[in-house]
Design a protein around this nucleic acid. Structure first.
Lengths: 216, 216
DNA sequence: ATTAACTTGCTTACTGGACTGTAAGTTAAA
DNA sequence: TTTAACTTACAGTCCAGTAAGCAAGTTAAT
């Protein structure tokens, strides 16, 4: 009775099938949102019934979580996975990513749509995005500190603001770009903003906004 | 037959009811999205049936459009309506708005959620947000040009990027703030980023990112 | 001033469809 | 022979929109 008698487990193609489904799900959730996109939509795209998808993933919520985890593995591998670029290299990497993103609207759209949707009540992706931003902010903050040390700058006070701002500008730019790709240059504008924020830390200047005592 | 015999039209309280409904709709669409929020949810909040709401607005899509138009009237009156602040005053206004927004999550959330959701297929709010960003970008661009002229700076090349970036950073920061209000300081971080981008236009500096020829 | 005619602002009831999830059955691989 | 990978069928909700009805208010004619 103690013998676990068999484990034929899954077939080799199953992994491929799951990946197909995940890809279709990114596509559908990106173009219709999580709430708006249906299992039927995804099933159609891979030539299956919606029950087949539930067989693999159990529930729509679970599918979303695996979609998010999957993209984190494959796509932001550069940032999350292997070795995180450090110091200036991280900022160069972010700029490169912005230019790269301008050529793959699908995944960009999925992330833009899902991250904003995740702030709604009881959204299954909320915790994922919370954690993701926390991680990314701390990585960018760390890079700022490294660069500050390298360049002998002491400007701790705004580093966390700057880190959040860099992620914010990349995300916000994507929304504008998705709404009208001809109206903004995703790569160039992101690069400009990242340089400006970086300079704001490395070469702090007196405020432009604070009312100067006007000439007497 | 030619006589237009009557026009009792609407009762005076009707305007108030409509406003109540619009407020409830902002709340519901903000917390559940447009697709996720239902007419029933909104009806419950104003003590009505969902058919009553359709009586006033005709369809869910139409309700969304009126919600967006209504908020534009009342809330961004500062920016859209009366006199648009110009030059540095516009940037000061944006910073003030960021600080103000940190104290009224509801409307902020509605706009963050709906603007991102609007990039999905056939979303009824898409055109609204497209136009809105186009307008805002050109207003911010204009302010940049005014400030450049005032300060004798000639830096046309990046003004459009900077304008898009300022809006992007404000929007992107809101998403991070909504996900975890304790993790980012919405007002302070927005202010820092706006100052940095403004400085990037007014006091252009050599790139921090471009690989410097390392010391010989 | 009264009343008749009409309109607004709803409600109830219903339609038709869509969606997630489940259960049971089928096929083919291990 | 067991199990994975499905399919078909169905259950139970839920949702936007429509139709019909009704009470209360408004207007016009008397």
């Amino acid at each position: 009775m103690a013998s676990s008698r068999r484990q034929p487990r899954s077939r080799p193609e199953t992994l491929l099938r799951r990946r197909e489904i995940l890809d279709a799900a990114i596509d559908i959730f990106g173009s219709k949102g999580f709430t708006g996109g249906t299992l039927q939509d995804i099933a159609d795209q891979v030539g299956m019934t919606h029950a087949g998808i539930l067989h693999h993933f159990g529930s729509k919520d679970q599918l979303l979580l695996e979609v998010l985890a999957h993209r984190d593995e494959t796509d932001v591998a550069h940032l999350e996975g292997k070795h995180i670029p450090d110091g200036l290299a991280l900022f160069r990497h972010l700029v490169m990513t912005a230019f790269l993103n301008a050529q793959r609207g699908g995944i960009v759209q999925a992330y833009a749509v899902l991250s904003a949707e995740s702030v709604t009540d009881d959204h299954p992706g909320r915790e994922f995005f919370q954690r993701r931003y926390t991680t990314l902010r701390s990585e960018v903050s760390h890079a700022f500190r490294v660069v500050c040390t390298e360049q002998g700058v002491d400007n701790e006070s705004n580093i966390d603001d700057a880190a959040a701002a860099i992620l914010a500008v990349m995300d916000g730019m994507q929304v504008q770009w998705l709404l009208d790709p001809t109206a903004v240059d995703l790569g160039r504008a992101s690069e400009f903003a990242i340089e400006a924020i970086l300079a704001g830390i490395l070469r702090p200047q007196p405020s432009v906004l604070i009312e100067p005592a006007h000439s007497p």
